[in-house]
Amino acid sequence: MNKLTKFRFASVILISDIFVLFCLKGNISAITAGGFLSGILIQAIISVPFALWIKKGKSIENCGNFVKIIFMIYFLLWATAIFSMFWDTSEVIYIPSQNSGIFGKISVLSAIGLVCAYMTSAGMKTLLRSSVIVAGMGAVCILIVMTSALLKSDFENIKIIRSEKFPNEFARGLILSGNLGSFAVLLGNAKGNAVTNSLIYFSAKIIITFIILMTAVLLSGGIMEITDFPVVMSAQLSQPFPSQRIDSLFLMIFSIFGVFSIALQTCLARYLFKSLKRGS
């Protein structure tokens, strides 16, 4: 992990953050975007003292075994939560075999499990290296979806607000910040100034969250009541080419981001486990 640059640090966590947004359930509106962005801003402010603590040469690995165990359990639970989101969302994105009985479900589960296990076994260094490439692919995908969304957007959708209340959406934004655990462990290993690294990450997170949520609102705002997964729906509605659909690109990025997010959590858990073993 000693080669964790600020860009790798930001990209590896942002991939997980974006995936969580992909799996966002329920109605969203401009209020949601506002709530989420405020939530991220609060996190950024809270992270400053933590970054200053890191700057003094401290890190989670240097804490006691109890802290490490807590973080390890947290990573495993968050990996399970991400997997659950993956599984739920994949119902609206067609995965062959998933709907063909128990055998089909087991085969999809095994495939995901195998790939995640392989990625975890390859280690943190490999995951960090691949994060840059995956993030690049994701950026291209989001750019295509966003560009085509702009052409089909209905700006009247921004005004549509159903039952969303700012405090609720703010709380929802805070709840969806499960990757702060990864942030806490990785920040201690990132090269450079911890405060700068932290600010780069949160700035990028604010921009990407805004882009994704607003794209979803502009495209599927009108049909939000019948939409389970607004971000997925916006990808399905945003068709840049007159006769071909972009779903395939989204499906691929969704799957890659999904397994990558799970692998990040399991990799971090493995990393802390190794650190525990070294300590004992």
Binding site: Y94, P96, S97, S107, V108, A111, I112, L251, S255, V259
Partner: peptide, 9 residues
């Protein structure tokens, strides 16, 4: 076996 999902994995 898994379509585009399999290719992504």
């Amino acid at each position: 076996v898994f379509g585009l999902f399999g290719i992504s994995l």
